[in-house]
Amino acid sequence: MNTVFNTESFRDDFTFRNSPVAVRRFPFPFHEDKYMYAVNMEPHVPAGPEGHAYRAPIDVDEHYVSEMKDREMVLREDPLRAQALPHMMAAQWDTLELLMEKQAEGFPELFSLTKNGDQWHWINRPLGIDQKFIFGDTSTLPYEPMDYIMRQTQGDICIVDQRDSQLWMDAGVVTTQADWSLDFDLGMNFMEWHGPVPLAHQIGVFERALKFLLNLQQGKPVRRLNWTMTINSRLDTSPENYPKWGPDRASVAPENVGNKVHLRCELQSLWRLPRSNAILFVIRCYLIKMEELVAIPKWARRFHRVLRDLPPELIDYKGLTRYRPTVVEWLSKYDDGKATSPGIFPD
C-alpha cells in the first residue's frame, strides 16, 4: 500500500483528495449498470487487483491519519457518538482484539500486537502509539476498549448483540455516517434500525439478511457494499449536524460537479466475536470525487447509467433530489454508450 499519509481535511476547506493509487483501489459499489437493494453479502476474503481495498481484512489507506484527526474532533464535540450499553463490555474487548489483530495482519509495517497471557503490547506507528495494557482490565487503557481502538481504526462500527433470534444495536462509534443517529438507534433491533429504509422491507431483504447474519460463524466474515452521495468531502454527514451540511446540497452547479460531488461507498464487513457472540459491524466509508471517478472509464459509464435510472424512492431516501439531474448531465459526457464489463473492478 501507499504508506504516505495525506494531510487533508473533511470539513471547512475540504482539502481531501485521492491519489491515482487510491482511485484504483476504491471499492466501486456497482457490479452492473443498474442498482436495487439486494442481500448482496459475500465472504470477506481478499479479492481484486493488487492493493485493492478488498485485499486486507480491515483496510487502512492514505487517509488514515487525517480521518483519525477528524474522528477526534467529532468525539470532542459530541460524546454521544460513542456509546455502549452496560452489558456490552465483553463485546468491547472482543472488538479491540479483532481490530488490533486484523490491522496488524494486513499492515504489519504499520501495526503490531504482541500477547503474553493477558499482558498485551500494541504499537501503532502512523499515530505514534506504544501501549502496554492488560487485556480485560479497562483501567490499563486511556479509554474504554471500543473507544480506544476506534480512535485508531478507519470507519464506523456497531456492535450488535444477539438474543431472542434478533440482533440489537447495543454499542457503536459512529462519526462518518450517512445520515443516521447512533444515539437515536441505540438499543433497537435489526428491523427497527432499518425502519427508515424504503422498498427493501417490502421485497424481504431485511428478513433474509437477518436470517443469514444470525448464523454468521466465527472466522468467516462477510462483506457487502452500500452507497450514497455526499456534497463536499465531509465524513461527518450525521443527522446531528444536518443543519451544517444540508445547505451544501443546494450548492451544486455544472461547473463544480467534478470537485464538489462525491460518490460515497461503504465497505461493510461483519464479524462474529468469540467471547460475547456479538457481531461486529464495520462500516468503512470511502469518498471519491466525480473528477476522480471518471478517470476509470468503466466506472464513469456505469455510474452515469445507475444514477440516471435510479428508482424515485431511492433518490429521495439518499437525499439526491436537488442535484441528481446536474450530476447526470455532467456524467453523460463520459458515457459513450459502450458496454461495460461485469464486476466492480477497473478494466
Binding site: F184, M188, Y242, P243, A250
Partner: peptide
C-alpha cells in the same frame, strides 16, 4: 428553536419519536 419534521422513527430507549430539521437545505 429549529423547525423539526416529526418522523415515525421511534426509540423505546428514549421514549420519543425523531425530529429532524425540515429546512436545513434551504433555511
Amino acid at each position: 428553536g429549529l423547525t423539526l419534521l416529526v418522523r415515525d422513527h421511534y426509540s423505546r430507549r428514549l421514549a420519543a419519536f425523531q425530529g429532524v430539521c425540515i429546512d436545513a437545505e434551504e433555511p
